[in-house]
């Protein structure tokens, strides 16, 4: 294991939305700060920095992770997905983005990247979810604008076990 020196910066590289990226981080640099301020991927938002609100959620090696509770150095060599990687190569929305748009499932949009990444990690499983399961899965993401109904509906449109009207 590489021992990192306090205060000095070392190179960190990982795959971000399918592309190799690298930058320099102190040992204590949070992954959220590294993504936003070193790589420039500012779509991931920081709202509590203590792991409760879920706004900074990204997908690391297929799992939803709070990037404010992970160090940049821990991301070395990992495969990371963020909001910037959701749209198709022709810039059209993916199914989740499209459902959020059609359902009015966002207002200020600050929590939305974290919510979309939490749901993206469910999407990978390929299975369908009940409403209580979706609500449970989203219980680590705080939204102050919507009251969640529209978010849950949008999620169910894509991941739900009900027939879409």
């Amino acid at each position: 294991m590489k021992i990192l020196k306090d205060g000095s910066k070392t190179q960190v590289s990982f795959t971000l939305n399918g592309t190799e990226v690298d930058g320099y981080a102190e040992p204590r640099t949070l992954l959220s700060d590294f993504l936003r301020h070193e790589i420039g991927a500012s779509g991931t938002h920081v709202a509590c920095e203590h792991g409760v609100c879920g706004a900074c959620t990204v997908v690391v090696d297929g799992k939803a992770v709070r990037s404010c509770l992970m160090l940049a150095a821990q991301a070395e060599g990992k495969e990371i997905r963020t909001i910037e990687g959701l749209a198709a190569s022709d810039d059209s929305f993916n199914k989740l983005q499209d459902a959020f748009h059609k359902r009015f499932a966002l207002q200020c949009g600050f929590c939305t990247p974290g919510i979309l990444m939490t749901l993206s990690s469910l999407q990978d499983s390929g299975r369908r979810y009940t409403e209580p399961e979706i609500r449970e899965a989203l219980s680590g993401n705080i939204c102050r604008c919507t009251g969640y109904r529209e978010i849950v509906d949008a999620a169910l449109d894509v991941l739900g076990d009900r027939v879409v009207a």
Binding site: L86, F93, Q97, H101, K102, F104, L106, C108, T112
Partner: peptide, 16 residues
């Protein structure tokens, strides 16, 4: 009418 704001926000391209 669907929100024009969503085009920016759902892509993580908001400028907060």
């Amino acid at each position: 009418m669907l929100r024009v704001e969503d085009q920016t926000l759902l892509r993580g391209r908001g400028k907060f």
